[in-house]
Amino acid sequence: MVNLSHSDNQIQCVSNFENLIRTSFQGKVNALCWNRKLDGDFFEIIEKSTLTENITLLHPDELSKLPLSKQGQLARNIILEDYKLLKAFGASPSINIIKHYDRDDVFPYFPTDVYSFHVDKSPIPTDTFLCTYHGNASEIVANSKADQKIQIPEIRNELRKLHDGKEEDFDAFLSEFFFDLHYQPKKNVEFTNLGVGNLWKLATKTPESNVLPCIHRAPIEKNKQYRLLLIC
């Protein structure tokens, strides 16, 4: 089960996919979880796949052709069913095998890669769906327990040094380079791990959203462990 002890009431659990897509975010709730314990050997899918990049996109047709044991086939069927459900809903899911994401070292004091706590942004109404089948899972933090980095005076002052334009254009500059999407957790704050096997719907920053977007980050890979992820 998902640990809700430090989620600040931002998480609501549901019992099936239909409830996941039909339940709306309200109040503090900006993360919906279809809490699941999955059977099958998901690591076998990683082992049998051809991995040539740090992030390998596994197409459903390729996944269907992998020679797998019965446990591997069970895992494959779960992934393909999740993929099918999300496609039917109108989403654009992708199946990824992740060694690691690219790190942002352009601004050492302000990385904008996915290992930094951030929110997703879209010009149209949408949500982020994700499930980690194998490997370390993502983490989220309650909005009340994190500060937008561009509002932290010392960070804002450093960013001003990068801005060559007029003062009235500074906020547009921050948005253009995605600085406004990143957050810094407050001291001694605990995070919620999204867990393996759970399918999540996270609120995105959109013009019409009536809740705060969900602040999340990708896990730092441990011991060169690959991660099998469905995301859209």
Rank of each mutant, 00 (worst) to 15 (best):
H59A: 15
D169L: 03
S15M: 02
D104T: 03
A31L: 13
C13H: 06
F177C: 12
C13V: 15
N210E: 12
W200G: 07
D39E: 15
E47H: 10
Y115H: 11
C13T: 15
E18S: 14
K166G: 05
S64R: 07
T126H: 00
L38Y: 01
E208V: 14
K161C: 05
D105R: 08
V119T: 13
A75N: 02
E44C: 09
I231Q: 05
G165R: 03
E81S: 07
T56V: 11
Y101K: 10
P153S: 12
A91G: 08
R103M: 09
T50K: 10
A137I: 12
E158A: 09
F43L: 15
E167Y: 00
Q184N: 04
L38I: 11
A31P: 04
K121C: 11
Y115R: 08
V2C: 06
T112A: 07
K37L: 15
N30R: 04
P153L: 05
Q26M: 08
E154Q: 10
A218P: 00
P185D: 07
S24N: 13
D147T: 02
Y183G: 02
E81C: 05
E208S: 15
S175W: 00
L174C: 04
L32F: 01
I95C: 06
S122A: 15
K37F: 02
F170H: 01
G40I: 12
G90L: 12
Y109C: 03
D61A: 09
Y115C: 12
S24V: 08
V119W: 06
I152F: 01
V114A: 13
P60G: 04
T204L: 06
K224L: 03
Q184D: 02
A218S: 13
S24D: 15
L130H: 01
L63V: 10
S7C: 07
Q26Y: 09
K205M: 08
D127M: 09
E154H: 14
R103E: 06
D105Q: 14
